[in-house]
């Protein structure tokens, strides 16, 4: 039996989840990565996507996050994110709306820099959508 580690998911509004986990799949900007106990210390940015948490009890929790940070320290994993929604009560329309908004942003952007940024967000949102439809 593998070891467990402390996992915390924090949004500005509250501490969403604080439990012992066996493994957590994190959507990093450079690609998804899996954190298990005794992972090397890493600080990574995360993109919109699905976080898969295997709890110590064996339950699988799946949560949709919008960009943020992952902090893997010897004490455990902390995810800081602005928005979290449980996939159980996930609202597909909301994501759809966000994608539409992002598309408009790309369209309306005045400078190249802003357009690149909006384009990036749009891509990430579409990735997230793909990730969800895959897992369902």
């Amino acid at each position: 039996m593998a070891e467990s580690f402390a996992f915390e998911l924090v949004s500005p509004e509250k501490l969403v989840l604080s439990e012992q986990a066996m493994q957590v799949v994190v959507p990093g900007t450079e690609g998804y990565f899996t954190v298990m106990a005794n992972h090397a210390p890493v600080i990574a940015m995360i993109k919109p996507g699905v976080v898969e948490v295997m709890l110590e009890s064996g339950d699988l929790r799946r949560l949709l996050v919008r960009s943020g940070f992952a902090d893997v320290s010897p004490n455990g994993l902390t995810l800081l994110t602005e928005q979290v929604s449980d996939l159980v009560d996930f609202d597909a329309e909301e994501l759809e709306q966000q994608i539409i908004n992002a598309r408009e942003d790309v369209h309306d952007a005045k400078t190249d820099e802003k357009r690149a940024k909006a384009q990036l967000l749009l891509g990430q949102l579409e990735d997230a959508k793909a990730a969800i439809s895959q897992s369902n």
Binding site: I43, A44, M45, F69
Partner: peptide, 27 residues
């Protein structure tokens, strides 16, 4: 107390810091 731990950064420090600082203001 974590100062002496060697962290890896993904992407690099500057990019993370560039994202983190503006967000820190809002926080």
């Amino acid at each position: 107390n974590t100062a002496d731990i060697f962290y890896e950064y993904e992407p690099d420090e500057e990019e993370i810091l560039g994202e983190l600082l503006p967000r820190n203001i809002s926080v």
